[in-house]
């Protein structure tokens, strides 16, 4: 099946004014093509949390998005420190974010679980000192 929309975004490191721009743009596209509001919301939450993680933990990275008539696939990757214990990182409340990040409103340790709850398929590939890639799929029906 051919993709109807393909987009690529750069996610700059430590820039909190533009963090979320990619998610905001994808959200607009989904609304414009008539995806149901609750699906737009689930996709937005999952992508935004992954985008923020790339900013605060991964030294920035990139997003690749493919949308066809049935689903959206979002791939967010970074070349940062990677996650040593993914099972631990997935636990609600677990965070290595410093206080400076928590003062900005992030670092609740809920990001990965919010991504899992809001995506239909989630796959995370990560290696210490190599980086992290998060694959999120949300079906439209």
């Amino acid at each position: 099946m051919s993709s109807v929309v393909v987009r690529d975004y750069i996610i700059p490191a430590n820039d909190f004014t533009i963090a979320g721009d990619a998610s905001s743009n994808v959200r607009k596209i989904l609304s414009q093509i008539g995806v149901a509001p609750d699906i737009v919301k689930r996709t937005s939450i999952a992508m935004y949390e992954a985008e923020i993680n790339a900013v605060i933990h991964g030294n920035g990275g990139q997003a690749h998005v493919e949308i066809d008539e049935n689903k959206i696939v979002i791939i967010i990757s970074d070349q940062g420190p990677g996650i040593a214990d993914l099972e631990l990182a997935m636990q609600e409340g677990y965070s290595t974010a410093p206080d400076s990040i928590r003062e900005m409103g992030f670092g609740a340790g809920m990001g990965l679980s919010n991504i899992k709850k809001n995506s239909d398929i989630l796959e995370i590939k990560t290696a210490v000192n190599e980086g992290t890639t998060v694959y999120i799929t949300v079906f439209f029906k």
Partner: peptide, 24 residues
């Protein structure tokens, strides 16, 4: 005050009260 806590809350037509003030 933590944005992921907000994103764990899913109700429609909601209002957010916060002590945090930034573009995020």
């Amino acid at each position: 005050d933590l944005m992921s806590d907000v994103m764990a809350f899913s109700k429609s037509n909601a209002l957010l009260l916060t002590g945090l003030i930034n573009p995020q």
